[in-house]
């Protein structure tokens, strides 16, 4: 007699299990915390800034009174604000350009095998990882008018004398150069990582073919590798521009906007007016000037990336 196995009785399965098996539901579930995070930490403060910028809200009188665009009008009429806007562009694009150049050369150097390369790769991330408050103290001493180690070295080497030593943070042009250099120093490890990721993703056979065809170092780098990695570099640049344009830490810690507002940037100005002086509505209006600029930059760069994508 043939014994037929009893059919296995199916356990009742909850509907919930099936919902979780759906990729679209599970995907949305996993992305939700990130969206919530961005909404709470970016979206809500942004909406609050818009709300404050069209009101007469101050810490002295924390009541909401609609004033339209008059805060923006008053801010634009201030010549110091226009200087600040110019400084912000100079600070952002200057430090990004310098950071990119340093990043490109850093990446090329780190691609070559040499003893201790792994340690150097780890160390090169330090400027990015060190808290800016700590790094600024070190830079402040390097640029200090009385104890500058840079000046001390130049004097010791006989390049300059004490009376002609550069007044790094006291001369308006040098002070701007200093904040640009410090910010580029912060940014360049990130640029190195971006360039390294890009360069290593270029197929070796393309580089080999170019070499066989007689392309030298510069042609390989600037006519073959660079155009291929431009989309990834552009993404890195977007990050750099957005973070630098909205940053106030280097200026706040190193120059406090001086001398005579020569290094004041939008983030710093917004903080001084809105938080320190308690004029929240004007502070918000100053900060919101960053928005259209960043919006245009990001849109432009994303369009560029889309066109360049292979």
């Amino acid at each position: 007699m043939v014994t037929i196995a009893e059919p296995v009785r199916k356990q009742p399965v909850s509907r919930f299990r099936f919902i979780l098996d759906r990729r679209d539901v599970l995907g949305a579930l996993f992305v939700a915390p990130a969206i919530l995070y961005v909404f709470l930490l970016v979206g809500v403060p942004f909406l609050l800034a818009v709300y404050y910028s069209i009101s007469a809200y101050t810490i002295y009188d924390p009541s909401w009174r609609f004033v339209g665009l008059s805060n923006f009008e008053q801010v634009i009429q201030n010549p110091v604000f226009l200087d600040t806007l110019g400084n912000t562009f100079l600070f952002t694009f200057g430090s990004q350009l310098l950071g990119l150049i340093l990043g490109k050369f850093g990446a090329l150097l780190l691609l070559r095998p040499f003893p201790g390369r792994k340690i150097v790769r780890a160390l090169i991330i330090l400027p990015w990882a060190v808290p800016i408050a700590l790094a600024s103290v070190a830079w402040e001493w390097m640029f200090d008018s009385l104890y500058s180690v840079i000046n001390w070295t130049l004097i010791a080497l006989g390049v300059i004398d004490r009376s002609n030593a550069p007044n790094w943070l006291g001369n308006p042009h040098l002070a701007m150069l200093c904040v640009i250099v410090v910010n580029a120093w912060r940014f360049f490890p990130f640029a190195i990582v971006v360039f390294l990721a890009g360069i290593t993703s270029v197929p070796q056979d393309i580089i080999d073919a170019a070499t066989v065809d007689g392309a030298g170092f510069w042609r390989r780098n600037y006519q073959i590798i660079l155009p291929m990695i431009l989309p990834i570099v552009a993404i890195g640049l977007i990050f750099g521009i957005v973070f630098t344009f909205t940053d106030l830490s280097v200026v706040y810690l190193l120059t406090n906007g001086g001398p005579v507002n020569a290094t004041s940037v939008l983030g710093f100005e917004g903080f001084q007016v809105g938080i320190v002086s308690g004029d929240v509505s004007h502070g918000a209006a100053i900060s919101l000037f960053m928005l259209p600029v960043l919006f245009l930059v990001v849109i432009g760069m994303l369009r560029f990336i889309r066109r360049r994508e292979i």
Binding site: S145, N171, N256, P259
Partner: peptide
């Protein structure tokens, strides 16, 4: 001297304490 254009609150203390 032009140094004073970049000074923080600690700088003048250091200036006199150093004997300059």
């Amino acid at each position: 001297t032009p140094d004073v254009l970049s000074w923080s609150d600690a700088s003048n203390n250091q200036y006199i304490d150093s004997g300059v």
